[in-house]
């Protein structure tokens, strides 16, 4: 597993461990987590990304909206027809 993904998984774990706290104080906001630390909570993704890039460049860091809806994968991604090998 690449190092960045390993670190990101740890940051996701840190997010999930503090989810109750985040939902109480930061619901609807975008939080930035670097390592085990909460860097900040922001009203927009742009603001969160700008601060994350300013502080940590290309990362790794986690940016996630607290209480955000489940994203939807486009049907074109999961329903692409594959030609049968014999045809």
């Amino acid at each position: 597993m690449p190092e960045a993904v390993k670190v990101l998984n740890e940051e996701i774990q840190a997010f999930e461990e503090r989810l109750e706290e985040f939902e109480q104080y930061y619901k609807g906001k975008y939080v930035v987590i670097h390592g085990q630390d909460l860097v900040g909570a922001f009203d927009t993704l742009d603001a969160a990304a700008e601060e994350a890039v300013r502080l940590f460049g290309k990362g790794p860091y986690l940016i996630r909206r607290v209480g955000g809806p489940l994203a939807t994968l486009p049907a074109s991604v999961v329903m692409h027809p594959v030609q049968h090998a014999d045809s």
């Binding site: 960045a4 993904v5 990101l8 998984n9 996701i12 990304a49 994350a52 290309k58 990362g59 790794p60 860091y61 986690l62 940016i63 996630r64 489940l70 994203a71 939807t72 994968l73 486009p74 049907a75 074109s76 991604v77 999961v78 329903m79």
Partner: peptide, 29 residues
């Protein structure tokens, strides 16, 4: 039909885009 824009995962890795999250997404499958 897509709400959000997507980038090919292999391409994103190859050009070194910062990975900022891994999340569950819903789809027809």
């Amino acid at each position: 039909g897509a709400g959000v824009s997507c980038i090919d995962d292999a391409l994103a890795k190859n050009i070194g885009l910062p990975i900022i999250d891994r999340q569950m997404v819903s789809g027809v499958g």
